[in-house]
């Protein structure tokens, strides 16, 4: 299944197909009785297969919300999400879980590794959730970690790894099921400039070698500059598409 997804993504990348499409998304959060936050007010966005896109914008503009909705972590109040030609905003949570486990990978600012698990277990967990046996998931995870230069850190816990190493574990975890799309929420936000560079370079290389689509929410202009394209969000709407 996952290699099919990969193949599909690569062929779409070549043909310039749309990998992700958000249409007129609306999302309102209720923080208190009279305190409504309109996070999205009709945001639309298209991401081509194999593309590396940066979403920029001030805090509270809806960047993270659109990322969460595109990653099937949250449902929009209104609007449509299409993932690889399939509409997913109206799916049941069971189906969304399955989609998240196989077709979407996440990378977060705070790395979000499970502290009691080793690097290997953290990566293998994603494989297990996608339906692999524990043994197979570990084998695949070990390979993925070796592939990003952490072959000697398999048994280390997150607390024993540097920030850059932790983020590389998180990247391995996001990629272990060979998803069509990787969504990053400030993936370099907690890293120093040099490490940030290194992580960006790694993602770029993966993007180019595998055709995996990347959507990165970022404040960092350097990260945005390294992407194929960047868009800006303001007040819950995608404002500008800067070529």
């Amino acid at each position: 299944m996952s290699s099919d997804v990969r193949g599909e993504a690569q062929s779409q990348a070549r043909s310039g197909d749309t990998r992700l499409r958000a249409l007129d998304l609306h999302k309102t959060y209720e923080l208190g009785k009279e305190n409504l936050v309109h996070a999205l007010r009709g945001a639309s966005l298209e991401v081509a297969a194999g593309e590396m896109l940066a979403i920029m914008g001030p805090s509270g503009s809806g960047k993270s919300t659109i990322m969460h909705i595109m990653g099937c972590l949250d449902n929009p109040d209104r609007g449509e999400i299409w993932l690889g030609g399939r509409r997913v905003d109206n799916l049941k949570s069971r189906e969304l879980n399955r989609l998240r486990s196989k077709e979407v990978g996440f990378i977060f600012q705070g790395f979000n590794l499970i502290p009691t698990y080793t690097a290997l277990e953290n990566v293998a967990l994603a494989g297990e959730y996608a339906g692999m046996s524990r043994r197979r998931a570990k084998a695949v995870a070990a390979e993925a970690l070796a592939g990003i230069g952490l072959g000697k850190r398999l048994r280390h816990h997150p607390s024993e790894l540097s920030g850059g190493q932790q983020q590389r574990v998180a990247i391995a975890r996001a990629l272990v099921n060979e998803p069509g799309v990787v969504l990053g929420d400030e993936p370099t936000g907690d890293l120093d400039t040099a490490t940030s560079h290194e992580i960006m370079g790694m993602m770029r290389e993966i993007n180019q070698s595998t055709g995996t689509t990347f959507v990165l929410v970022t404040h960092n202009p350097e990260v945005a500059a390294a992407c194929d394209r960047k868009v800006c969000m303001l007040d819950g709407v995608v404002k500008r598409d800067v070529p």
Binding site: G71, L73, S93, R94, N97, R98, L99, R100, S101, K102, F106, N112, L113, I114, L125, A126, Y129, A130, R173
Partner: peptide
């Protein structure tokens, strides 16, 4: 709580 969020983002089902 955060760990549960991470697990869910990785596709863990409620049953899991």
């Amino acid at each position: 709580t955060r760990e549960v969020g991470i697990r869910k983002s990785l596709g863990a089902s409620n049953a899991r």
